[in-house]
């Protein structure tokens, strides 16, 4: 660690001011998360107190106005929809990043990237509306009823694909040229160069992109609310309608009072727990198998 006293540049008051305010702002940013969690706990306390944690797992179903508060099927709905979307979007995104960098002619590559950037900027309501008007009737025609886990996975995959692709593309573009030259000098084919050199060195970047995508998929509300059907049940097929934790909050929060309201904050807490779980799992995976690229 470098302390400012051993720096070559002369010590200045502005440095102190900067380091002070930067520290303060960093603390605020970190503190916000703690505040949010504390707030969630505070608001869901009545639910924990009156209903008890176990009933969120052991109640027969979710009919909050009828005093029944099972959340597990919505936890599964959230997990299935977001992991499905990540599994579908990641290979597509990584392959299109590779295409964009190694195969596409420069002009096409530039336009392709620009289009994907535009895709990343489309608001989720627009995705949801498109899903409701085009995708859901299409699935309904093929395999009724239409609003389903599949529709949710597809919409979420569309939404997170650009994020993963852009992050992957950026980290691929930052692979030191020397690596590529060495691979060529060793007579690697283009495919084995990508498989054995590019992907291992960009693993961290690609993983970060996937993590960002997963976080967006977990937290997405509006689009999922519009295409998933919102029926509270654990899906057994891709064509079953599901309700996610986020959709549950959005659907019922405006109309909930008392324990019902606290139970909705509880679903927020469950969602937070899911995010923490996924992020720490991903962190663990990331530290386990990455080669550190030494420059």
């Amino acid at each position: 660690m470098i302390s400012s006293s051993s720096n070559i540049s002369p010590h200045s008051k502005r440095d102190d001011l900067l380091s002070g305010s930067v520290r303060f702002l960093a603390l605020t940013a970190g503190g916000l998360l703690l505040l949010v969690i504390a707030f969630l706990f505070y608001e869901s306390w009545p639910a924990l107190h009156h209903i008890g944690l176990t009933r969120f797992f052991s109640d027969p179903d979710w009919y909050p106005t009828d005093n029944s508060y099972r959340l597990t099927s919505m936890v599964w709905g959230t997990i299935f929809a977001s992991t499905g979307a990540v599994l579908l979007a990641s290979p597509l995104a990584i392959l299109s990043a590779l295409f964009c960098h190694f195969y596409a002619p420069p002009l096409l590559s530039r336009w392709f990237r620009r289009m994907v950037e535009l895709l990343a900027g489309i608001p989720s309501v627009v995705f949801g509306f498109w899903g409701l008007v085009v995708l859901v009737p299409m699935i309904g025609h093929w395999h009724p009823p239409g609003p389903s886990l599949l529709a949710g996975i597809l919409i979420l995959a569309f939404m997170i694909m650009p994020t993963i692709m852009l992050v992957a593309h950026t980290s691929i573009a930052h692979v030191p040229l020397a690596y590529i030259h060495s691979a060529s000098a060793l007579g690697f084919s283009r495919w084995s160069m990508m498989w054995h050199v590019i992907l291992p060195t960009t693993k961290v970047g690609i993983f970060t992109g996937i993590l960002l995508g997963l976080a967006r998929a977990l937290g997405e509300t509006m689009a999922v609310l519009m295409v998933c059907g919102n029926v509270v049940q654990t899906p057994s097929r891709l064509f079953d309608p599901i309700r996610t934790l986020t959709a549950n909050i959005a659907l019922e929060m405006g109309y909930a009072l008392g324990d019902h309201r606290a139970a909705l904050f509880m679903s927020g807490l469950f969602l937070m727990g899911l995010v923490v779980l996924f992020v720490s799992m991903a962190e663990g995976l990331r530290h386990r198998n990455t080669y550190v690229a030494t420059k």
Binding site: D66, V136, G140, P147, N230, V231, P241, R243
Partner: peptide, 23 residues
Amino acid sequence: NRDIHAHVVIGDNEQGIKTVAGN
């Protein structure tokens, strides 16, 4: 509410109308 076997659960009137208009 437990007796109802729904395929879609909606929030406001507009969302319901869009769902029916689309299917």
